[in-house]
């Protein structure tokens, strides 16, 4: 079997309901973006799981390198002052 060019891979993001963000659900192959939307619709929204579809060519996704996870994400771990639980507020004070 000779190897021919295959349809590019697109990552699919679906917004399930208005108010929610688009969530990554998987991927489809398609020759062009219009087809990718149709494929995403036919594969990932058969059970009314979506109101909006984004498709992005997989090669265009830029991802953080798991090997750099420590450098990228560790520093945030000990900056607990970003979390509301770090602050002691008396119970009597409302709306905080």
């Amino acid at each position: 079997m000779t190897s021919r060019a295959e349809w590019p891979l697109y990552e699919v993001f679906i917004r399930a309901r208005s108010g929610l963000e688009h969530k990554h659900v998987g991927s489809v192959h398609a020759a062009d973006a219009r087809m990718a939307i149709e494929h995403a619709r036919d594969v990932y929204t058969r059970r009314q799981e979506g109101v909006s579809i984004w498709v992005v060519r997989s090669v265009d996704i830029v991802a953080s390198d798991p090997a750099e996870a420590d450098a990228l994400f560790e520093p945030a771990r000990d900056k607990v002052y970003r979390h509301p639980t770090f602050y002691a507020i008396p119970d009597e004070v409302k709306n905080l």
Partner: peptide, 11 residues
């Protein structure tokens, strides 16, 4: 011709 079209035609 492609798996995605099986779904499209079935739809």
């Amino acid at each position: 011709p492609e798996l995605e079209e099986d779904l499209g035609v079935a739809n």
